[in-house]
Structure formats: structure tokens, C-alpha cells
């Protein structure tokens, strides 16, 4: 195994699952999410310097997943085939997450404006700081704060409507 392949395998082992889950939350579609993350991992090889710098590689992967998720949602909107896949999933026996029904939460997240959804996923799922979330989203930290605040308020009201 050459050095770069070993580097990529390490990246995969450490971050693939989290990126995949992040993509699922962003696009509601497991197989599309897998394609997005696969593509990001393949493209990270386009620059050897990037792959040798772990922080750059990670930032690239996260931004790539975010950008491709945006493109996918936009294409869906164009073709008017937007469907909330997580919502359509049959509820399993343990769908309760500390009082919030998973299906209801998935539906509420899917109804958020795209930027609020991204900020919520990066801040509250990936646990990124405001500054790092801003870097990945290419917006200001103030904007992230505003997106999160509005997103949480909106989610709370959507969940109260349903619960």
C-alpha cells in the first residue's frame, strides 16, 4: 500500500461514517449520501498536498459533502421530485429519541431552509464550533449564529405542531 493510499484509508476509517451521517441528514437519502461522500473521498486525491495535510483534507471533504448536497437538493427542486425519504421510512419499534419522534424530527429538518439545515447539522450533529462551521459554509460566524438560532426556533415550533 503506497503512502497516499494509506493516508486515504486512515481518513476513511476515521471520518467516513460521520461524513455519511452528515450527508444523510442533509439530503434525506441514504444511497445519494453514500455517492456524495464517495465522490468527495475520490476527489480529495486530486491534490497530493491536500491529502498530506490532514486538516486541509478534512476541510475539503466536509465542504465537498456540503456543496454536493446543495447541488443535489437544487436538482431535486428543479425536477420537482423532492421527497422526504426519511419521512417515508416505516417507523421502527424504537422511534422515540428522548421524547422526540424520529420521523417527526426528520420531517421538520427537511422543512428547514437549506442554509439553516446545513448550520443545524454542522453545529448540532457534527458538533463543529461556530467559526469552523462558518469556514465550511463560507459564511460569517454571525451568519451561522443567526441560521442556528432561527433553525432551532423553527424546528421547535414545527415539532410542537406535530407532537
Amino acid at each position: 500500500m503506497d503512502e497516499l493510499t494509506a493516508e486515504l484509508t486512515d481518513l476513511y476509517n476515521e471520518h467516513y461514517s460521520q461524513l455519511l451521517r452528515m450527508a444523510v441528514l442533509l439530503v434525506d437519502d441514504r444511497s445519494a449520501a453514500e455517492d456524495i461522500v464517495q465522490d468527495a473521498f475520490v476527489r480529495v486525491f486530486d491534490s497530493r498536498a491536500r491529502l498530506r495535510d490532514r486538516d486541509r483534507a478534512l476541510a475539503f471533504l466536509r465542504r465537498s459533502v456540503l456543496n454536493k448536497s446543495r447541488s443535489l437538493l437544487r436538482r431535486r427542486q428543479v425536477s420537482r421530485k423532492y421527497q422526504h425519504r426519511l419521512v417515508q421510512r416505516e417507523p421502527g419499534p424504537d422511534e422515540s429519541a428522548h421524547g422526540v419522534d424520529r420521523t417527526v424530527l426528520a420531517e421538520a429538518i427537511a422543512r428547514l431552509p437549506p442554509r439553516q439545515r446545513e448550520a443545524i447539522v454542522l453545529r448540532y450533529y457534527a458538533d463543529f464550533s461556530e467559526a469552523y462551521t462558518a469556514k465550511i459554509m463560507k459564511v460569517t460566524p454571525g451568519a451561522v449564529k443567526a441560521y442556528c438560532s432561527r433553525g432551532v426556533t423553527r424546528l421547535s415550533s414545527l415539532l410542537r405542531e406535530r407532537v
Binding site: Y16, V24, E34, Y124
Partner: peptide, 23 residues
């Protein structure tokens, strides 16, 4: 609640067994 809910929502999502070989 949101943080816990998001993690629970995707806790079952795992990479496919062939993901690394495909990459």
C-alpha cells in the same frame, strides 16, 4: 433535544461493506 435527536436519527447509518474498496 435537537442534538440528541440528530444523533439518534442517523445512529443506524453505517457505510456499506464495500465502500472503502469502491473508493
Amino acid at each position: 433535544l435537537l442534538r440528541e435527536g440528530l444523533h439518534t436519527l442517523v445512529r443506524d447509518v453505517e457505510p456499506s461493506p464495500t465502500a472503502l474498496s469502491r473508493v
